[in-house]
């Protein structure tokens, strides 16, 4: 009952979020001069070039940019799905990906996918328990207890533990997927446009849910999006990438205090930040557009 009330309150945006958890000990990402060249048929395509950024443990970083600017490529390299062509990435000062060492996917860097990748043949609970069970770091009983606890703390999701993903709304599915990722206690959480297909209202609700999870269970987060408001509302820092080749155009520190609620969207500070970011992105979009025109001609 309380879980239900709590969830309704939080969906309506009235509930004050808990205080931000202390900065975690692990999860520092050091990205140095990373480049990625795709060479499918001899015609080299530079997807990412000379990309450097430092992300402190427990920071929430958003990467925005036009489609095809290589932001997903960067996430794929960090996740270990793809190797890099130059530069290096360190995780907690240990090499994660270098030109000699191809990265491998692992449960310390969990991805939440654009179209959702909960296993449709497993219940919510089995999905959440999956990671620790296959890694054999918990017994079935421990995993179940921890999964239910985590689901409950993340907006009362334990109510739907027995449901199959298809029985939930897409917003609910995405929240469960984030819980499934958090269950592995990852150092880095990689979110690749997870709310892309949602309408504005559900998106705002999802943002509050995500921030709530971030407050409860603070991790280094790399959040990919092309929605500027989303980036500012969620992140500590927004990185704007340019397209072809994908390089960093500008970085914007978001100084807005936490906890943040939907009311913030109307504030003067938020609008000023958005104007500043829009100008940078717009300039880039125009350049990309003109370049596209030239390519057409």
């Amino acid at each position: 009952m309380t879980a239900k009330i709590r969830s309704i309150a939080s969906a309506a945006g009235h509930e004050a979020q808990l205080d931000l958890a202390p900065r975690p000990a692990h999860g520092k990402l050091t990205i140095t001069e990373v480049g990625k060249i795709y060479d499918p048929q001899g015609a080299a395509v530079v997807a990412v070039s000379d990309c450097s950024m430092d992300i402190a443990a427990g920071d929430f970083l958003a990467i925005v940019g036009p489609s095809g600017c290589g932001k997903s490529t960067l996430v794929n390299i960090i996740a270990g799905f793809d190797n890099l062509s130059s530069g290096e990435i360190l995780l907690d000062d240990a090499p994660l990906a270098t030109t000699e060492q191809a990265p491998r996917p692992g449960s310390d860097r969990v991805v939440v996918f654009q179209n959702g990748a909960l296993f449709p043949w497993k219940s919510v609970l089995d999905n959440v328990m999956y990671g620790p069970l296959v890694q054999e770091v918990m017994t079935h009983r421990e995993a179940k207890r921890k999964a239910l606890d985590l689901l409950r703390r993340c907006g009362g999701l334990d109510r739907v533990a027995e449901a199959y993903p298809a029985q939930l709304s897409s917003g609910m599915q995405r929240r469960v997927e984030i819980v499934r990722a958090l269950m592995n206690d990852p150092k880095v959480l990689l979110l690749d446009e997870p709310f892309r297909a949602m309408d504005t209202v559900s998106k705002t609700t999802m943002h509050e849910h995500l921030l709530e999870m971030y407050h409860v269970c603070r991790k280094t987060i790399v959040f990919i999006t092309h929605d500027l408001e989303e980036a500012i509302f969620l992140a500590d820092r927004v990185v704007v990438m340019t397209s072809r080749p994908g390089t960093i155009k500008t970085t914007l520190d978001v100084t807005l205090p936490r906890p943040r609620t939907a009311a913030l969207l109307a504030s003067e500070d938020f609008r000023a930040l958005k104007a500043k970011l829009s100008a940078a992105v717009h300039e880039e979009a125009k350049r990309a557009f003109e370049r596209g025109e030239r390519e057409q001609a």
């Binding site: 270990g80 991805v111 990748a117 990671g131």
Partner: peptide, 26 residues
């Protein structure tokens, strides 16, 4: 969908887990 394989890899699956929990049910 390839994302299921990627998700399984992220969550620390070994090939036998991929076979049992992704390929066969999928």
């Amino acid at each position: 969908d390839n994302d299921y394989f990627r998700a399984a890899a992220c969550l620390g699956s070994k090939p036998r887990h991929v076979l049992r929990h992704v390929i066969v049910p999928g």
